[in-house]
Simulated scan of single mutants.
Amino acid sequence: MARFLLVHGAAHGAWCWRDTIPALQALGHVARAIDLPGHGADTTPLGQVTLDRYADAVLDALDAPAVVVGHSMGGYPISVAAERAPDRIARLVYLCAYVPWSGLSLAEMRREAPTQPLVPAIRRNDDGVSMHFDPAMAPDLFYHDCTDASVAFALANLCDQPLAPMQTPAPLGNAYASVPRSYIVCEDDRAIPPALQHRMAADFAPEDRHSMNTSHSPFLSDPTALAALLNRIAG
């Protein structure tokens, strides 16, 4: 049995792991998901959300060492959490997620990709501190291999995304480097180009690089296969 903590990506929340949690539980694991500050049921004002507060939320959810899975933007807060408290994290798993490079914010890392599929869908909000994704474009970017019901569920739950966490580099050092880590490339991803995912995973050990033939949202499109892969990684 393993413990899993599941951390969502930009504009998402704990809700996106709805189908993956029971799939992991069916394999005998303990699994839970959290809402990062300003997401889902968390009511932190968007102007007060920072990368540090994201990392605090991850650590606050760890009452025992766990495999911490970060999706997409979630790769940044799980990395900062590992730098702060490596003893509380059994392994980091980056699910089509950003792996911080030295000195680069997530927004800067996104620009390292050969194409920028997300840019046309980004809408800055009038508050000056957040953005959202155009709901008309979100299905093709994030959920093109999901059922209509799952797409409707996701679109009903997408939220505004604070900008500050994505504009902040992640200070990482030896503590972070001591934590085992794995990467799962989503080969049919239309949000983060697979070419960039492969670059970010390039310095992971070969046995810690995995792939799925899914969109950016395998937690909804193929939760059973995702749980099976996480089971193998944890084992």
Rank of each mutant, 00 (worst) to 15 (best):
I34G: 01
R84C: 11
A85R: 14
V69C: 01
T43D: 13
D52E: 10
L51E: 15
A85C: 08
L36V: 14
H29Y: 03
D60P: 00
P86F: 11
G28V: 04
V80G: 10
G28K: 10
A85Q: 13
L51G: 14
T44I: 12
Q48C: 14
S72W: 07
I34R: 01
P37F: 13
D35S: 00
P37S: 08
P77M: 15
H39A: 12
I78K: 03
S72C: 13
V30R: 13
A55K: 04
G38F: 05
V80W: 13
V58Y: 02
A81G: 09
L59Y: 15
D87S: 11
R32P: 02
I78R: 01
V67M: 00
A57S: 10
L36E: 06
Q48P: 06
L51A: 12
P77W: 14
G75I: 02
P65I: 00
L46I: 07
A57V: 08
A31C: 01
P65K: 02
Q25E: 15
G75V: 01
I78P: 10
T43W: 13
A81T: 10
M73E: 10
P45N: 13
D35C: 01
P86A: 08
S79P: 07
V69L: 01
A81H: 08
S79V: 05
L27I: 09
A81Y: 05
G40K: 02
P65Y: 04
D60M: 09
R32V: 04
A33W: 00
T50K: 13
A55D: 07
L59N: 08
P45Q: 11
H39P: 07
D60T: 12
R84S: 15
A61K: 04
R88M: 03
V67Y: 07
A82T: 03
A82I: 02
L59W: 10
L62D: 05
H71Y: 06
P77D: 08
D87V: 03
